[in-house]
């Protein structure tokens, strides 16, 4: 996407840290600044036409403030140091915070930060107290992989709003972006495909079984009710037994992208499935081409699998 004027004329500043100074700050009158200047012009004409010194003095005061404003606005940003944090991974399509550490000796008023590529009104705004502070600048990546959010624009128009002063910086640390979570079919390598696909599409739980799949029989006690009564045994032997159920030990899921689907779509389905399995505490593994991640569970397994999906060859 082409950057708007005048940012596209400004050369790029990279580097892990970015200090705001005369070489990295840019300043122009804001829309309100132009209106202010116009009002001063109106006051000047009023003063000249009506021979009114009051209106003239007011016009000159407005002009004086306008002349002073760029310095005050620049001083609100000058000396601020930005440093890249370690961005936490997230899913494509979600709003991700990009951490930026701001170090300042002075108070900084009414700042706003946003990534230029970001659409909508996603951005961070606030004031900074002296010392170090973390800004979580939101952005919304559209693709998986190691993504860079692009150019960060940090701006301020404080304290008078007549000028807007800004800096542009390309924070170098990329953020790991997992494929977007899109529910859909995935390939389970150790399960019948048709049933698997059917179940996935239906969105049903893979838990099979019914009232016949009991684990053992124990003598029935009246307080256990009729629901657990083993009717077949009662009919055969005339003795009352209660069915004892046990959860079947789930088998680990070994997941792979569905070859029938486009690659990116299949990875997005996998991302959703892995997220779902991790949430329900199940065990899962992943096979991506010749890369295999053994079955496991827990947050480390989740990060490992999602990172593999994020970095998988297209």
């Amino acid at each position: 996407m082409r950057e708007p004027f005048p940012d596209r004329l400004i050369r790029r500043h990279g580097g892990a840290s970015h200090r705001l100074g005369l070489r990295t700050l840019y300043i122009l009158p804001s829309g309100f600044g132009w209106l202010w200047l116009l009002s001063c012009g109106v006051l000047f004409i009023l003063g000249v036409q009506g021979s009114s010194h009051g209106a003239l003095l007011l016009a000159y005061l407005g002009l004086g403030l306008f002349l002073l404003a760029p310095y005050l606005t620049q001083f609100n940003l000058q000396g601020l140091e930005l440093r890249c944090g370690s961005p936490a991974p997230g899913f494509a399509g979600d709003v991700l915070p990009y951490p930026v550490q701001a170090t300042s000796r002075d108070q900084r008023l009414a700042l706003g930060a946003r990534f230029r590529r970001c659409e909508g009104d996603l951005g961070w705004s606030g004031s900074l107290e002296p010392g170090q502070q973390w800004l979580a600048v939101p952005w919304r990546p559209s693709r998986r992989g190691l993504q860079s959010p692009g150019r960060l624009r940090l701006q301020s128009s404080a304290p008078l709003g007549l000028f807007v002063c800004w800096t542009l910086w390309d924070p170098p640390a990329p953020q790991l972006v997992y494929p977007a979570r899109r529910p859909g079919p995935v390939l389970e390598l150790d399960r019948p495909q048709t049933r698997e696909r059917h179940q996935a599409e239906a969105g049903a739980d893979a838990q099979a079984g019914g009232s016949d799949h009991w684990h053992e029989l124990t003598p029935h006690r009246p307080e256990e009710g009729l629901a657990r009564l083993a009717w077949k045994q009662l009919a055969r032997s005339g003795e009352r037994y209660a069915k004892r159920f046990a959860d079947p030990q789930p088998r680990p899921h070994l997941l792979a992208p569905d070859p029938a689907l486009p690659r990116e779509r299949a990875l997005e389905h996998l991302s959703a499935r892995i997220w779902q399995l991790a949430a329900s505490g199940e065990s899962y593994g992943l096979v991506l081409g010749n890369q295999t991640i053994a079955a496991g569970s827990g947050s480390a397994q989740l990060e490992r699998c999602l990172a593999a999906l994020a970095l998988a060859a297209p």
Binding site: V42, L46, G47, G50, S52, G54, A55, L57, L58, A59
Partner: peptide, 8 residues
């Protein structure tokens, strides 16, 4: 601007 007019 109203203030400027009143000043006149």
């Amino acid at each position: 601007i109203a203030l400027g007019v009143l000043a006149g």
